[in-house]
Amino acid sequence: MKKDIILAGVGGQGILTIATIIGDAATTAGLNLKQAEVHGMSQRGGDVQSNLRLSSETIYSDLIKQGEADLIISMEPMEALRYLSFLNKDGWVVTSSNPFKNIPNYPEEQQLNAELASLPHVMSLPIEDVAKENTMPKSANVILLGMAAKHIGILTPEQLRESVARVFAAKGEAIVETNLRAFDIGLNTANK
């Protein structure tokens, strides 16, 4: 069994935290894992992605082949579309619908949303708005992870939830509680 996931976003949005949580859950579950990250210049507000590969078998490549990703998890709608050629035919896109506009030629939002909506398996939510409404502005990424949880498949939502607690444990009980709540908001939204 394998799961190839592309995490996408803009430098500074927290996709590496999502990767860390999934990585912790995979390691605890005894799965093999490869996670290619972007460090360096792009982290200054450029587009960033991480290829996350989970499998019960040996994983060779650190990079996912085009047409083979099972899931794209994106913190930003345009960034979700950037990796479309990597998605397999049954693949899911789980994305934030809040645009991050730091370029002058950002696409027209209506067209962008229409293109996203035209995909066969897509789920989007304005996670930043939801995070603010729930007074957890820094946990938008964990809401997104909760939304994607049931599509990860190779790990259960419960395993991921335990990893949320472990990854944030060093930051204190209050931050763990906030992020567990964020995870549940995402999970419940996806189950609606």
Partner: peptide
């Protein structure tokens, strides 16, 4: 290579700043 989805239309480069 089997690519079920073609490259998206509404994507622009996002250089660092």
């Amino acid at each position: 290579i089997d690519k079920p989805f073609v490259d998206a239309q509404n994507v622009m480069p996002r250089p660092p700043a």
